[in-house]
Amino acid sequence: MKATRSSAILEAGVITVAGPLLVFSLYLLLAGHNQPGGGFAGGLVAGIAVLLVWAAGGTTTVRRVLPLRSTVLMGTGLVVAALTGFASFIPGLEFLESGYVEVSIPLVGEVKFVSALLFDIGVYLVVVGMSLGLIKALGEEGEPAEVGR
């Protein structure tokens, strides 16, 4: 695999697929509390989207399309997850104990908002960050290096 290969058709096609994939990953994240999915699965789907972008143009394209640092994503995810835990103290609950509110949104209807979703968003961010980080680290362009057996 040479780093210099890049095809306009491939790139355009991949971006077309990667966008909906990212949306799908968000769907999995939000729907996860009641249907199959959740932050972990959603994050992995987003990771696969990143992988497709990589396939289109290597790490340079990944950096261009997703100008985010994997460490920032993972750190934010951890902080969000931990803060959700501490936030439970405010209404006097135990660490990470969840609560929910029902909100009615115009045009959408009744929506149950579960505090555990915030925690799941943290998980999602960590997993996306992990995928992005590994892809960037391992997918570095260049001649295959002699790493030994």
Binding site: G32, Q35, G39, G77, G85, F119, V126, V127
Partner: peptide, 26 residues
């Protein structure tokens, strides 16, 4: 308030475990 019990376990009942796991992952 979740009907997907697998997810509820991960993010609620055993959320502390999950927090530990994602920390290890990072």
């Amino acid at each position: 308030a979740g009907s997907n019990v697998v997810n509820v376990i991960l993010v609620d009942f055993r959320a502390f475990d999950t927090l530990g796991e994602i920390t290890v992952l990072v």
